[in-house]
Amino acid sequence: MQNAKICLYPRDASEAVRILSENGKRALILAGGTTASANEDPQVTILVDLTRMGLDTIEWEKGQWTIGCNVRLDQLAQHPGLAALYGGMLVEAVQAVGSTPIRNAVTLGGSAVQVFRWSDPPVALLAMDACFDLQGPGGERTLGADAFFAQHPQRVLNPAEILTRIRIQESEEDSGGAFVKLAKTEVDLAVVDVAVRLICSGRRCTDLRIVVGATQTLPWRAQAAEDLLTGKRLGGRAIAAAARAAREAARCRDDVRTDGEYRAEMVEVMVRRALKMARERARQQS
């Protein structure tokens, strides 16, 4: 951003959208700002700081959580109410991110839109079937998590469109959830992330979402594993079979941290562990 001459601070989402639509590729968005500083695009002449337009609160109403795009990860981690949402999996996922100063800067909106292969919160958001409120020049729309992460969100968003809020519906049924991360050190990027959300009726699992992260470009649902368990009781053997199914579906990348083979093996281990944790939490709730 060596050519950036001004920075604009929109006061609300409409102003942000207007600025972005007027400036196209000249404008670069700053949110938490942990990635923007590395931008070297010479076209960028205008910085747009989205952190001054509100949208920085966590609200609960009628079983639905609404989280502004500017809510930082440290705020989420400390929020007492979220600790009960699907076993606290969102808190677990944001706690898994980097280190304290990174969580103090990164916003949930930024993390969702600018998802990297190893990003932890999107894994939980996809598993919780969060809704993503978008605002753009053509008005407002809402995407479900599956649509939002169907391809990279930056391609899902239209030009000048921004993510304003993320909404998560609580379940009225018994439910549980878990987010687990496997990394080689406490502050390393993930080898594998797994998030599980399950909704039960008695001992039977009526709805299940299993999401795996860090193995390929975007977090993905292990649908074969979900299908094996949905409508069933979550016994040890069934869980083990589902974990194997997830492993078979995983297309794991090699990277500097580990090879695809170890990753794939860990998908099975982590899916198994996440399912067991989610099951225990669901049982505790019922």
């Binding site: 950036a4 500083s37 800067a105």
Partner: peptide, 10 residues
Amino acid sequence: VRSCLLVAAQ
């Protein structure tokens, strides 16, 4: 926060 990741405008 880490200042090396921030730009002046922030």
